[in-house]
Structures are given as structure tokens and as C-alpha cells.
Computed example of a mutant assay.
Amino acid sequence: MFKKIMVFALAAVAAVSSAFSGASVRVAAVVGAGSLALTAATPALAVPPDMSGLTNEVDFSTAIAALLLVAGSLMVVYIVVKASQLVLGMVKRG
């Protein structure tokens, strides 16, 4: 089906470009034929593929738990560093 559409689009480009000699008309004909081909091919792509068989089998709960563990650990490290800087600053001013 796509080959038939492309043949029709190329025939339209050839007919328009041979009828007119301006370069802008040729560009417009190519763009118009390309958009015609894409518009005609769109109904074939209107129904997305069914990926539910793949997505139902994926479980991200362990990955999410690991990410939260790493984020919590980094948060604790940053809090300890900030608190130690605060205490050392108080001792130096002291």
C-alpha cells in the first residue's frame, strides 16, 4: 500500500514540476506530495501496538525501593556534613 502511495506522490510531483518551471513551485510540489503520502499512510499507524503483555510483567517496586534507599543515604550524609560544619563553626568562633 505504501508503495502505491509513493508512486502516486512521485507522479504528482513530476506532473506539477513539469507544468511549471519555477523552483519554488517544485519545492511546494515536493512538500505537498510528501504531506499527501504521510497523510495517506497515517490511518495504518492510527492504532498503536498492544504492549500490555510486556508492561504487565515489569515490576519496578525493588528498583524504586533501591532509589529511595540511595536518596535517603545521601540525605543523611549531607545532613551530617552540614551539622559538623555548623558545630565546627561554633567552636572556632567560640
Rank of each mutant, 00 (worst) to 15 (best):
M1S: 11
M1Q: 04
K3I: 09
K4V: 01
K4Y: 03
I5Y: 00
V7A: 09
V7L: 09
V7Q: 08
V7N: 07
F8G: 06
L10E: 09
L10N: 13
A11F: 08
V13H: 04
A14G: 06
V16D: 08
S18I: 14
F20R: 01
G22K: 05
A23P: 03
S24D: 15
S24C: 02
S24Y: 05
S24T: 11
V25G: 01
V25T: 07
R26P: 00
V27P: 02
A29Q: 03
V30T: 14
V30Y: 09
V30M: 15
G32S: 14
G32N: 04
A33V: 01
A33N: 00
S35H: 04
L36K: 00
L36G: 01
L36D: 00
A37Q: 00
A37S: 03
A40H: 02
A40F: 05
T42D: 07
L45D: 03
L45Y: 03
A46W: 07
A46M: 07
A46K: 07
A46Q: 05
V47Q: 14
V47N: 13
V47M: 06
P48Y: 07
P48H: 09
P48S: 12
P48R: 09
P49I: 11
M51G: 10
S52G: 12
T55P: 05
E57A: 15
E57P: 00
V58S: 05
D59M: 01
D59R: 09
F60Y: 09
F60D: 11
S61A: 08
T62R: 12
T62N: 14
A63M: 04
A63T: 06
A65P: 00
A66T: 08
L68C: 13
L68D: 15
V70N: 09
A71R: 06
A71E: 10
G72N: 08
G72Q: 02
S73Y: 04
S73D: 09
L74M: 11
L74N: 07
L74Y: 04
M75K: 05
V77I: 14
Y78S: 14
I79L: 12
V80H: 02
S84Q: 14
S84W: 11
Q85W: 08
Q85I: 11
Q85G: 11
Q85D: 15
L86E: 11
L88V: 13
L88K: 13
M90V: 04
V91A: 08
R93Y: 02
G94C: 03
